[in-house]
Design a protein around this nucleic acid. Structure first.
Lengths: 219, 219
DNA sequence: CACCATTCGTTGGTAATACAACCGACATGT
DNA sequence: ACATGTCGGTTGTATTACCAACGAATGGTG
């Protein structure tokens, strides 16, 4: 097996785990590294899952189809992101989405049951891995809660100000950059880009906010 | 300490833990049971937190104030629900909301660091507690993902059908009950109740859905 | 410099939603 | 019977958002 640690070392699941430990870990957990060709399906919606997936290389799409047969892309997963962890860790056991390789992709599969079961050798990384998993789940939780807080607002104005106010709080300053361009910000807030632009202009003319490109100032 | 196990036994964090183990656990983890009077503040926004909170009795409100000073209720926490777990488990360490007792409340505080650190006695419940915590975080994750999928839709019609389709999928039937009345459904989808009612009537007249009270049928 | 792609602001018409207000059906308690 | 409260549907209006289209500014490239 080629060394995939460099690709995954920045994964939240592996923080604090060295390259040496990483390889020992893969052996102990009997992790599997599989390759999927472009367009190939990794999982079908409803499949029983026991493994957490780590994207080493390539790009995955999570797809969901409603009961009328309409398909939509839920998310894109890029290295070194993780997928299926919520379904696996919840004990739910069934994946609510399909997973397909958008490009030729390499995925590392780790059996969650082996993670939470202390092995006979009681390897040192078990505890660390579990803490990392908890931390990753909790972080995603907090990010989603924050996003919820913005999206549940009724108007574009409220959504935008809720988001900007939140960033300002985090950055401890009323002057800050955001990591999105207009289209990405519109997608994040799930509103129309042009409507967002218009609302921003309005707020700027009212003196509520000021901005240029992705730098913002709140009054 | 009075016996609080009956109030908490149905908590996801304690599934599979017996009453006897529970009491031993509280001792080992040095859990603290505190009482808060009506209106009293449990945590202020931004407070450093290390303890997961379990509401034994009473009712809590999570409050958030934006940088302009507007306050809003984020959620209500009722027994035997848990709170602050995301902030604590993420290693973030700071709470993004304030917590106040809406009624006189009893809260059990459990230090997360003691949960993930195997004790000298290596009590048997540690592993179970950790698995329960992971499961709880993952479940919340999945519920929020599902809700996101509905709320990010642009129109009331899409939001509603996305939700109903999802429930139908879970129930494996196109005829099912939902656990909300109109106002609650509107709140969940974050739309106006009357606008939701109007849209529902329209869909019924078009033959797309049928419903009476909280029972629905999809075509 | 000319060319192209990308990003962002603007505009005008149309559609959808929020909001407030009201009504009827139903249940409960006096 | 009556008052009261809750719940859900309906209506009219003002507001807001979507959509498509266009143009200006920007930055990279041959």
């Amino acid at each position: 097996m080629i060394n995939i640690f460099p690709q995954l070392s920045s994964s939240p699941l592996l923080t604090g785990i060295s390259g040496d430990n990483f390889n020992a870990m893969l052996t102990c957990l009997r992790a599997k590294l599989n390759t999927f060709g472009q367009g190939e399906t990794v999982y079908y919606e409803g499949d029983p899952v026991y493994d957490v997936g780590l994207v080493v290389r390539g790009r995955l799409h999570l797809l969901k189809s409603d009961i009328w047969g309409n398909n939509s892309i839920v998310t894109e997963i890029n290295p070194p992101e993780m997928f299926a962890e919520a379904a696996v860790c919840s004990g739910e056991g069934r994946l609510p989405v399909s997973v397909t390789a958008k490009e030729k992709s390499e995925i590392l599969f780790i059996d969650y049951r082996k993670v939470v079961t202390t092995c006979p050798q009681s390897c040192g990384f078990h505890a660390k891995l579990i803490r990392n998993m908890i931390s990753a789940l909790a972080r995603k939780n907090m990010m989603m809660s924050a996003k919820m807080g913005h999206i549940t607002k009724r108007s574009i104005k409220e959504k935008l100000l809720s988001y900007l106010g939140d960033v300002a709080k985090q950055k401890l300053s009323k002057s800050f950059d955001i990591p999105y361009n207009r289209q990405e910000l519109a997608d994040y807030l799930s509103v129309e880009r042009s409507a967002l632009s218009a609302e921003m202009s309005r707020l700027k003319s009212e003196g509520v906010i000021d901005y240029r490109k992705n730098h913002f100032k709140l009054q």
